[in-house]
């Protein structure tokens, strides 16, 4: 199940985080995110979480003020993609402690980090919540160590 792209947009249509697992031009990227932004924002609540767009499927889910949008191949499993989103949110929630939009704006590096531990080249590499957070924590620690050494030197 290869995920083609994942991005977060706010209700106002601002992109908060974007990750592309496809090699396409910047122009194309902004076109897709613009089009999908309007498409997804215009949909009402209680509608299906899957929309067909071009030749792939778009799976999205809204959490508070943020829309998580994922593009997958047309023959991929949609519900599972939906749960990939959920797992991602869970992990961020655990890490930031009750995540909100501002956490992602200011701590964008961490959000990317969690995402990178969850997905690699669009494929899920680790489905366990603990494992991912353990990795992120480990690396935070490494970073703190570096800073500590830096201060000492």
């Amino acid at each position: 199940m290869a995920i083609q792209f994942l991005f977060l947009i706010s209700r106002q249509g601002k992109t908060r985080l974007a990750k592309w697992y496809q090699t396409i031009s910047q122009k194309e990227k902004s076109k897709i995110s613009r089009e999908l932004g309007t498409l997804v924002l215009s949909r009402r609540a209680k509608m299906c979480n899957v929309v067909e767009y071009r030749d792939f499927k778009v799976v999205y889910r809204r959490y508070a003020s943020l829309f998580f949008i994922v593009g997958i191949n047309s023959h991929d499993n949609e519900l599972l993609a939906l749960e990939v989103i959920h797992r991602f949110v869970e992990q961020m929630d655990k890490m930031y402690g009750n995540v909100c939009e501002l956490d992602i704006i200011f701590g964008f590096d961490k959000a990317y980090h969690v995402l990178d531990e969850l997905l690699l080249d669009g494929y899920i590499q680790e489905s366990s919540r603990k494992e991912v957070l353990k990795r992120v924590d480990q690396q935070d620690e490494l970073e703190n160590m570096d800073e500590f050494e830096h201060i000492l030197s």
Binding site: A2, Q4, Y21, Q22, T23, I24, L120, D121, G122
Partner: peptide, 10 residues
């Protein structure tokens, strides 16, 4: 390597 050399979709 994974993120730079991925050629999916091109």
């Amino acid at each position: 390597i994974a993120s730079t050399f991925s050629i999916t979709g091109t």
